[in-house]
Amino acid sequence: MDGAVISTWLAALLTLGIMSFVYKDNLYYKICEAIFIGISAGYWFITYFWDSLYRIAWIGVVHEGRYVLLGGVVLGAMMLMRLFGKIGWIARWPLAFIVGATAGLKMMVYFTTNAMAQIHGTVDDTMVAFGGGDLYDLIGRLVILIGTVTGLIYFYFSKEHKGLFGGVAKVGTWFLMITFGASFGYTVMSRMSLLLGRIEFLLTDWLKLVK
């Protein structure tokens, strides 16, 4: 039998097995679940082994002489100290290094993209609209302005949401919920396209009912 036919059959049976969960938990689903988890865990083990241990640690350090990579090797080895009871505390050091280094590296990126660029975008767009533009544009920018300010008030934690402040925060909640509703509908539609893709695979590639 052709290898492509076997793989199509396997893919189709596994697809049906995972989809059977919609009915209820069953043996067929459990088998597919175990295959999926087992294969993916094995796949990632091999990927990490060849990408990190072999390509970076072995080739990089031993063959290419990039000794700076030894730092990563040492941190990785320290993680394994967890396996030895009394010196298990050593494993906390690489963990602290990763968290600290990442926080430092990402601080600048987050501050410029998540804070400065967001403020600049809101201020600049609103300024442009107020500085001249048609009525529809002005209304649109006004909605953005109100949504941004009331949303920020909702996420302001230093003051209780009571009185006028609470009322403004409530408006922010409305903006959030309307946004979530729109986002929900949009994402559900994109998920439908994924489902249709799977159904198309079953009907076209597997059953050959659709050409």
Binding site: I37, I39, W44
Partner: peptide
């Protein structure tokens, strides 16, 4: 469990 996103979900 596994690093695979949907394997983990399953």
């Amino acid at each position: 469990v596994t690093d695979e996103q949907f394997g983990f979900v399953a």
